[in-house]
């Protein structure tokens, strides 16, 4: 049962990575959104430092939303999704593999890039590590939640904007905990509690949300 999923994972990653365009677009989007903050708020280092965790996290959430928009769209249009639904593997696991592939190729680059952007906004030392760590724990949850939205809005009018309306409210806890962890680190306060809660969210989301994704996909495919 593991082998077909592994193959699917490899296929999805190579599909995304060979079209380098997608990865570049999402990364560029992430960087540009963060660049907008200093331009809108002003170059004073103190001010930028206070908004840095929030800015990076908001940019990551938006980038995740934008990139997930088309997670299932291509497979749905050419019928691959129906084949996957008929395959002997549970659809939830298939969905999990797809989300994992998506996160590895489009989410992980943001996590890796985040310390550089955090530094540009004035974060230092341990704060950068906490920022990357919080994103590492948090962005998979965002991907899973976003995938539910992507599955629900397949073949529905006004997909992208509608998906933002459906999913952004659900992003709130992750955003609070993620940016909160960095904020704690900035005041030299214990940030572990935030990170543990983020980890708990991930632990809850990992088994449950694939079921929701599979449910949403089945509704679309019926």
């Amino acid at each position: 049962m593991v082998r077909p999923l592994w193959t699917l994972l490899q296929r999805d990653i190579s599909l995304i990575v060979t079209r380098r365009q997608d990865v570049l677009t999402v990364v560029a989007f992430f960087v540009i959104v963060i660049t907008l903050f200093p331009l809108a708020i002003g170059p004073e280092p103190e001010k930028l430092r206070t908004i840095a965790p929030g800015a990076v996290w908001v940019a990551a959430a938006l980038a995740s939303l934008i990139s997930l928009d088309r997670l299932f769209a291509d497979d749905w249009r050419d019928g691959t999704l129906e084949q996957l639904a008929l395959a002997p593997q549970p659809l939830a696991l298939t969905a999990l593999a797809k989300v994992l592939a998506h996160w590895l190729s489009l989410g992980l680059p943001l996590v890796i890039l985040s310390p550089a952007l955090g530094y540009a906004l004035g974060l230092q030392g341990i704060e950068l590590a906490v920022l990357a760590g919080s994103l590492l724990l948090g962005t998979p949850v965002l991907s899973l939640l976003g995938a539910v939205g992507a599955a629900m809005t397949l073949g529905v009018r006004g997909g992208g904007a509608l998906m933002a309306l459906l999913i952004l409210p659900l992003y709130v806890p992750v955003l609070i905990l993620g940016a909160g962890a960095v904020n704690e680190a900035m005041f030299a306060a214990p940030y572990q509690a935030h990170l543990s809660l983020l980890g708990a969210l991930l632990a809850v989301a990992l088994p449950l949300l694939p079921l929701a994704i599979a449910g949403a996909l089945r509704i679309t495919l019926d």
């Binding site: 809005t153 529905v156 009018r157 459906l166």
Partner: peptide, 8 residues
């Protein structure tokens, strides 16, 4: 409401 309304 939006999701319900958006589906054909």
């Amino acid at each position: 409401m939006a999701l319900h309304a958006a589906s054909d």
